[in-house]
Amino acid sequence: METMAVVVLLGVLALAVGGCVCVVWAERGGPRWVRGVAAVTRFAGELVSSSGKSGSTSRSSGGD
């Protein structure tokens, strides 16, 4: 069971690194499929970023 968790985490890491490579390649004018992967990667990053921000603002009291 522990080995399966390691394999899943390595797969997620490989997808994240591959997405970052595609974002950099797309900025330099890569092929159409690279621009597509880069767009999906950016969208996923925005989703993760916005979910983290909304969770932190709902917990703050605002009494600073």
Rank of each mutant, 00 (worst) to 15 (best):
G62R: 05
W25H: 01
A26D: 00
G11T: 01
V37Y: 07
E46V: 00
G45K: 04
F43M: 04
A44W: 03
V6S: 12
V23D: 14
S58M: 11
G18W: 15
V8N: 09
W25S: 01
M4I: 14
L13T: 11
G63P: 05
G19Q: 13
K53T: 12
V12H: 02
G11S: 12
W33F: 01
A26R: 10
T57Y: 10
G18R: 08
G62W: 08
L9C: 01
W33V: 15
C22A: 15
A16D: 04
E46G: 02
V8E: 05
G19P: 06
S61V: 06
V40C: 05
L13V: 15
V23L: 02
G30C: 14
R28Y: 10
A16F: 12
S58L: 13
G29W: 14
S60M: 06
M4V: 14
E27C: 02
V48T: 13
T41N: 01
S56K: 15
S49L: 00
G62D: 12
R35Y: 07
G36T: 14
A14G: 07
R28E: 07
T57E: 11
E46M: 01
G55R: 02
T57M: 03
L13E: 00
S61Y: 00
G29T: 10
P31T: 04
G19D: 10
G19N: 13
A26I: 07
S49V: 02
W33C: 13
T41G: 15
G18Y: 14
G55H: 06
G29E: 08
L13K: 05
V17F: 04
S51A: 10
A44G: 08
T3S: 10
T41I: 09
R35G: 03
L9I: 00
V24C: 04
T41F: 12
L10A: 09
W25T: 07
A26K: 11
F43I: 00
S60C: 08
S56I: 11
R59L: 08
G18L: 13
S61N: 15
V7M: 09
R35P: 06
V23T: 10
R59G: 09
F43D: 02
V34E: 13
S60D: 03
E46L: 12
A38T: 08
S60W: 03
V6T: 07
E2Y: 07
R42M: 14
G45C: 12
G30I: 09
E27G: 11
A38N: 14
C22F: 04
V7S: 08
C22N: 13
V34P: 03
S60Y: 00
A5N: 03
T57P: 03
E46S: 00
S54K: 00
G30S: 14
C20W: 14
E2F: 14
L9Q: 03
A14Q: 14
T41V: 05
V24L: 04
S60K: 10
L10T: 03
S56Q: 11
S50H: 06
R42G: 08
M1R: 03
L15N: 07
V48Q: 08
C22S: 01
V6R: 11
L47V: 10
V21R: 04
L47I: 01
S61H: 04
S49G: 05
A16V: 05
S61E: 12
G45D: 06
T3G: 06
D64H: 11
